[in-house]
């Protein structure tokens, strides 16, 4: 079982966390202005890279707060975690 670092609580066991999919997919500014395809891209389409991937996680069995993480999808290693109001680390 992996250890995952929560930006607020520190390192905790993986079972305390909930996965939230790709990060930085913002809710559109004005959904009604979008075409069906543009809206469908927001609702249904996500990237699925092999390698580094910015994801959303929730410390669901801990502080219940959301954060972002850059994780390697091939090795499962977390490279960095950051709060939702922070920029993705380069």
């Amino acid at each position: 079982m992996q250890l995952i670092e929560c930006p607020w609580c520190g390192t905790r066991e993986e079972t305390e966390f909930h996965y939230g999919g790709q990060a930085h997919v913002a809710y559109p500014e004005d959904p009604q202005a979008l075409t069906d395809e543009e809206w469908a891209r927001y609702v249904f389409f996500r990237t699925n890279p092999k390698g580094l991937f910015a994801e959303r996680w929730s410390h669901s069995a801990g502080c219940r707060r959301w954060f972002n993480a850059v994780r390697d999808t091939a090795t499962y290693r977390f490279h960095s975690v950051y709060r939702p109001d922070e920029q993705r680390p380069s």
């Binding site: 909930h18 939230g20 913002a26 809710y27 959303r56 929730s58 669901s60 219940r64 707060r65 959301w66 939702p84 109001d85």
Partner: peptide, 13 residues
């Protein structure tokens, strides 16, 4: 509750 928290925290903080 999780759903509501998710929107509040990630979209409309």
């Amino acid at each position: 509750l999780d759903w509501m928290e998710e929107w509040l925290q990630t979209e409309w903080p």
